[in-house]
Design a protein around this nucleic acid. Structure first.
Lengths: 233, 233
DNA sequence: AAGTGGTCTAGACCACGTC
DNA sequence: ACGTGGTCTAGACCACTTG
């Protein structure tokens, strides 16, 4: 392993484990140089890699800081729900703490038997009109404090990002006909085409949350734009 | 502008304009050092940035080469159609060269009036079963040689990548009910939920192609996996 | 065997933004 | 004003892999 990779990995570990939280300041280059006994360019390279990975933000004179994790949607390269929906608001329709059923365990992935989960049903509105239905499971093994959170101010996806440093995420996008719950909540016909986004996030091997967000097919599209060449944006 | 950015931009221009084609060899670091009158680390930084942007591949002893562009699907972080579909094959159902209609021009973006386009309808099969329907327009202004291509060996998306160095791409994913053509080609019921992926690519300001690929909603999902921390993969 | 990229050093000057 | 990151230099040694 190269020296810059070793330094990078050490800091990476502190961030992904949660020991360093978003906004925390890292040692300065000079301090890292002294601590590791390497040249400044070597430390610089390690930090540059962390910036490229989106884990660190650097500001002159101020220092290097742990970056705020991107929203679940930004992961996909997609704009946020809150930017995408003008006049966004949300309402928690259902909320239950329960011991994970077999179906819950299948959705989340490997969860110990007897583990408790929080199940949420949230409607997202845009300018007063129902825009999407979110059906989410949160593992209380991974995020025990979610049990007492009302999710009044922040929707669960946003709220979670501020608590749990996830390390892995998976998105699945598919189409499906509206079932009875979706049809009545979103005001559409049974079996009408819907876009379904399923998201799962992990921290290491531990499942954190699984969300299924359903959009009316004719009112919503996921858009991703890519530019070749420029490094950022 | 910094020196490494200037060097990077010059090479970038040669690649994106098509002056340097995939597989072409770039000057060695030593040659670039001599040409630009800078230190080797500066050239190295420029090339490292190009590698990070996916434009260049470097191999020891061999040299630096223009990278092969990723498939249209890889852009999204999604596996290729040909990897995803076991026993993939395709069939060109329709093929027409015509002067761009108003609808064609709207789909492609800004195309001069009177410009000719190639319109294709392609069925993709997996192990003999219809898996997706591709409806594609290709601007013959951008890719004149497409007019004589039969698309027998390679499907149009793959074929195009080997000819045209695109600079920008946009994906839209939505759900829609199956229309008559889709339903009969893919063997599904009218109005059944489908996943529709619309792709457009440009080279500079010039539209190259617009594709709409329709999948049966219950048989297909787009999956994207993200890992936080590690730089690549 | 030789040429390539990969890494590292120990300096230096500069630009910027916070203090 | 000062400490920070950003860039750059002119060397060096090494690992790899191809011709």
């Amino acid at each position: 392993m190269t020296r810059h990779a070793a330094i990078r990995q050490q800091i990476e570990g502190l961030i992904l484990s949660g020991a360093l939280k978003p906004g925390d300041r890292l040692p300065s280059e000079q301090e890292l140089v002294a601590a590791h006994g390497v040249a400044r360019m070597t430390v610089s390279r390690a930090l540059a890699d962390l910036v490229a990975a989106g884990l660190v933000v650097r500001r002159r004179k101020a220092g290097s800081f742990v970056a705020a994790p991107p929203s679940e949607e930004k992961l996909l390269g997609v704009p946020d729900m809150r930017e995408m929906l003008p006049g966004h608001s949300h309402a928690v329709l259902k909320r239950a703490v329960r011991v994970a059923s077999a179906a819950d365990r299948a959705r989340l992935g490997v969860v110990p038997k007897g583990a408790r989960v929080l199940a949420l049903l949230v409607r997202h509105d845009s300018e007063g009109r129902a825009a999407a239905l979110e059906d989410r499971l949160i593992s209380l093994e991974a995020v025990p404090e979610a049990a007492e959170e009302p999710f009044a101010a922040l929707p669960p996806g946003t709220w979670l990002l501020h608590r749990v440093p996830w390390t892995e995420a998976e998105h699945r996008i598919r189409a499906a006909g509206a079932d009875a719950v979706v049809a009545s909540t979103l005001g559409m016909g049974l079996e009408e085409a819907c876009l379904v986004m399923e998201r799962r996030t992990w921290r290491g091997d531990q499942p954190v949350t699984a969300a299924r967000i359903t959009w009316p097919g004719d009112r919503h599209a996921v858009t991703v734009r890519s530019v070749r060449g420029p490094l950022r944006g």
